[in-house]
């Protein structure tokens, strides 16, 4: 599959009466890393989850507006959510591998989507582990439990699992916040590698991580996007004072 961009158009998300996301419009370019930053409760994770309709699973959440990918509005009632999440993968804050072997963690998705031949699955497992820089560490123990891996390895396995179904976009919600510095550096390196094939949207509380890994940065505050620009610009000379104050640690 080809990497593709996606866009949100006047997207609003409500928790009951409360409008958590207020008519946000953002364009995500293909093969770019976009970082979403902002203080806790500003709506960035809610926004991220709405990009592959993960909010559907939370009671009392209502979504208004459009999200376009491949000429399709994913908020249309007719959209197959399973296929949608194949197209738009997700990596969570805490590594959450299945209680299965390393091999099965990766083979699970492709098998679910109809690939049965062992040779083909073997090839996918190897390719995904290589792309996630895990192959050398795991090739001799593919059939041992994924839970025996370290936290950083587990997170890279989750990333490998997410790319096994050949998504176009990968959403990451604080993918390195539970990891030690070395594992964090590995995940960041991996993000830089993965953007050759995928579009990546990442929520992070770590400002310097946003500065290091992303091409564009969107600053969320109180459910709105205050500023969206090239990351270089945001971190050297932001246009909005609120952005400057936030990234300099004056509030948030």
């Amino acid at each position: 599959m080809q990497a593709t961009g996606m866009s949100a158009n006047n997207l609003s998300v409500f928790y009951g009466e409360k409008e958590a996301i207020k008519s946000v419009s953002l364009e995500f370019a293909p093969r770019e890393v976009t970082a979403l930053i902002g203080p806790s409760g500003c709506g960035k994770s809610t926004f991220l989850r709405s990009l592959n309709r993960m909010n559907d699973t939370i009671g009392g959440v209502r979504t208004k507006g459009e999200i376009w990918i491949d000429g399709e509005n994913i908020n249309d009632p007719g959209v197959d959510v399973v296929l949608l999440r194949q197209k738009i993968g997700m990596v969570w804050q805490r590594p959450n591998p299945f209680h299965k072997s390393i091999y099965e963690n990766i083979a699970f998705g492709p098998r679910y989507h109809g690939i049965r031949k062992k040779k083909q699955l073997d090839a996918i497992v190897e390719e995904c582990l290589r792309k996630s820089a895990l192959w050398e560490e795991t090739k001799d123990r593919l059939h041992s439990s994924a839970l025996a891996l370290s936290g950083g390895q587990q997170q890279r396995l989750c990333i490998a699992r997410s790319i096994a179904v050949q998504p176009k976009v990968i959403l990451m919600d604080e993918p390195a916040s539970a990891l030690d510095p070395v594992s964090t550096a590995k995940v960041e390196e991996l993000i830089a590698e993965l953007k050759k094939d995928f579009s990546i949207i990442i929520v992070t509380h770590n400002m310097h991580q946003a500065a290091r890994v992303s091409d564009k940065t969107a600053f969320f505050y109180m459910g709105k996007v205050v500023e969206y620009d090239k990351t270089d610009k945001i971190f050297t000379n932001p246009s909005e004072k609120a952005t400057d104050d936030y990234i300099s640690g004056r509030f948030g």
């Binding site: 500065a211 971190f235 952005t243 300099s248």
Partner: peptide, 9 residues
Amino acid sequence: QQPVAKDLR
């Protein structure tokens, strides 16, 4: 301190 934006300038 990893200053950014105006602090860095």
